[in-house]
């Protein structure tokens, strides 16, 4: 019927809008991660842990950050992986 084809048309329009929104947002986030490369990043983590490190890269599922020169409360770890689940927020200057 006419009404169901109109409905499926607006469904596909809605889907396209959502896909476009998702890609704009994802690209923005990926650019943010790229802009962090080799920058000093401060991580605020659970259990009131705060550390600073030089950012290397993130995996695309946002599960792990690879960092260097991680300043922990008990010393510097030259190369480290930080679990994203341990992180509340992180900040860097641009």
């Amino acid at each position: 019927s006419i009404s169901s084809s109109a409905a499926s048309e607006s469904d596909s329009e809605q889907l396209q809008k959502e896909q476009h929104a998702r890609s704009v947002l994802r690209e923005g986030f990926l650019r943010c991660l790229l802009s962090m490369t080799n920058k000093k990043v401060q991580f605020q983590m659970y259990e009131n842990v705060k550390v600073e490190a030089t950012f290397g890269a993130s995996d695309i599922d946002v599960l792990n950050f690879q960092v260097s020169d991680l300043h922990t409360p008990i010393g510097v770890q030259k190369e480290a992986l930080i679990r994203c689940q341990d992180v509340i927020s992180f900040t860097f200057d641009i």
């Binding site: 998702r22 947002l25 986030f29 943010c32 946002v62 641009i94």
Partner: peptide, 14 residues
């Protein structure tokens, strides 16, 4: 708010 990662829902603030 600059972006929100659709994978992790992380919010990017400037």
């Amino acid at each position: 708010l600059l972006s929100v990662d659709p994978v992790s829902a992380s919010a990017v603030l400037l």
